[in-house]
Design a protein around this nucleic acid. Structure first.
Lengths: 110, 110
DNA sequence: AATTAATCTAACCAAAAAGTAAGTACCCTA
DNA sequence: TAGGGTACTTACTTTTTGGTTAGATTAATT
């Protein structure tokens, strides 16, 4: 009779949960994606949709999301300026994640 | 012809995404739940499964998860000590969330 | 001529989260 | 009697994150 040894596979950098967390793990990230959803949102609209976020964080997160190619940005050369954000194809793929967040929250928390 | 006004519903404390984020938003939380999964895990096993986490953070997160009723803890009065963690019914409900993280990571990142 | 509007930037500081390192407890084995 | 195993705990420091304030832009409105 051999001693049973539980095999532990240490999670490394290829852990998909970790990889996803790296992009979506911020305090505001999922909330912003959730608000944009499959719509077009202006900067000011997002600000009103997430009132507690500071302008700095909103811009910072949006820039990050554009850089990571989850969000595309279109600025119109107008005065006053108009900038529209929407999800890219990659960004749209986060919507199922957000849907599970919504469901868990609705059924168990709020 | 009336000016089109986009209706913005500001997300308040009842936003399900925010509520879920409040519990699952930590740097290590989802990773720990992912490792426990539908299994029984000892403290030391979790430590080996997530090598980069510090003991302090692991304990802190586990305590938080027990307090939030996502994880149950069973300590055996033995020397050396043995403590087992497993997901509660509520904790098991986070597995679909984690599954979407895994899928997104596998298909788009790793 | 001053004000307003919308989007963004930069500098600075505060708070929160996470990391580090050491120590505690207890019995067993060598 | 020294060291090892397991699960924590504490005090301290660093890093990350977030908040505040001020300012740039420039055409149209007051």
């Amino acid at each position: 009779m051999t001693k049973k040894v539980k095999e532990i596979i240490p999670c490394d950098d290829s852990c998909p949960v970790k990889a996803t967390l790296k992009i979506l793990g911020g305090k505001w990230t999922l909330l912003i994606l959730f608000q944009i959803n499959d719509d077009v949102m202006r900067y000011g609209e997002l600000k009103r949709a997430i009132p507690e976020i500071s302008e700095k964080m909103l811009i910072q997160e949006l820039n990050m999301l554009v850089e990571k190619k989850l969000v595309s940005k279109k600025a119109y050369p107008e005065i006053p300026p108009r900038v529209e954000y929407r999800l890219t194809d990659l960004g749209l793929k986060t919507l199922p994640i957000i849907a599970t967040f919504v469901e868990f929250g609705q059924e168990n928390l709020v």
